[in-house]
Simulated assay, not measured.
Amino acid sequence: MPSNSPSPDQTIIAEEQLAPGSAASSKESEMQRGNSRKPEPEAEPASGDALLEKIAAELYGISSMLLGEGEEAVGLIEGVVANVDLPTCCDTAEARRKARLLLAADAITLLGQRDASTNEALAAPGDDSGPAGCIEDDDLSAAGVTPDELERMITGPEHHRLRDWLEGLSDSLRVIFVLRAIAALTSVEVAELLSKYGGLAARGWTAEAVRSNFRQALCSLASQLIHATATK
């Protein structure tokens, strides 16, 4: 895990206000639509070991989806918990968000280091960001998944199906899906994380490319759900 990674908040939170149609405008549109996952619990003061333990438990699910279960995922969480600055957080929701941004930055860095020889795993797409998907909207509901269904897919008795599907995705698609659908980050945030921490080949990621790849992942998920339903 990187020891002196600059805080992703320094570059992600302080975004410029741009004209409609810009990255910031797209981010605002995403936030207005709302994330498909369940709403965050009502804000409460961010303090105490109990909150850190709760955040660590939530982060393990995200970390293990990005890196796989094991010591690497656990070590990543330990570093995030040690570095998240709770006294500067206004409430629990902000503490969770900061922790997820730190986790995402460190996980992307590790994935980039795994692929240091080829430097292609997290490479940004070219001008053509990929084939047109079967889904037009970059929202989980477009894949026919409700917040409750996603929660069951993550924690339910058949959670291995989701993990098996994630393992079959490319590193970039897996990162984008997990950070957008599970960690509730925006396309603007994911693009900036990939560009900053994914290595030289990842510097070209844009919010629109993230949206396009997220739709591809959602299309794959919809196909997986159809197949799973047909085989029951």
Rank of each mutant, 00 (worst) to 15 (best):
A132P: 03
V178F: 02
E120G: 10
E72F: 00
L193E: 08
E72Q: 11
I182T: 03
A143V: 05
P2C: 05
I154G: 03
V188G: 10
R97G: 01
R96V: 04
M1R: 11
Q113Y: 13
I176T: 14
I108H: 02
E58I: 00
S63N: 07
E94L: 02
G34N: 09
S129Y: 14
L150E: 03
D171V: 15
H227A: 06
D49P: 00
Q17M: 03
M65W: 03
A184S: 14
A143C: 09
G168A: 03
E151Y: 14
Q224L: 12
L162P: 14
L101V: 05
P45S: 13
K54P: 00
T146D: 15
E78R: 08
A95M: 01
G21H: 06
C89Q: 13
A46W: 05
A57Y: 08
S26G: 10
Q32K: 15
L66R: 09
A143E: 09
A222T: 10
R114Y: 01
C90Y: 12
A184H: 08
A191S: 11
R215L: 14
E149V: 00
Y197E: 15
P39G: 06
E78C: 05
E58V: 02
R152N: 12
G198H: 07
A95W: 01
G48S: 04
A228P: 03
A181M: 06
L218W: 05
Q17L: 02
A202L: 10
D49E: 10
G130F: 12
I62N: 04
H227P: 01
P131Y: 08
L110I: 15
A184C: 13
L101N: 03
D85G: 02
K98N: 02
A99G: 01
A228V: 13
L110R: 04
T206H: 03
R180W: 01
I13T: 07
A217P: 05
E208F: 10
P41I: 10
V178T: 13
I12C: 00
I182K: 08
A105E: 14
L166E: 04
T231Y: 06
E71S: 10
L221Q: 12
E44A: 15
E192F: 04
K196Y: 13
I154S: 06
E40T: 08
A46Q: 06
D137I: 14
F214C: 06
S3W: 05
A123S: 14
S22M: 05
Q17I: 01
G199S: 13
L166R: 15
R180C: 02
D137K: 03
S212E: 15
E151D: 11
G126N: 11
S220T: 13
G112W: 04
N35D: 10
L52Y: 00
E208M: 14
G70D: 02
A23D: 11
S212C: 06
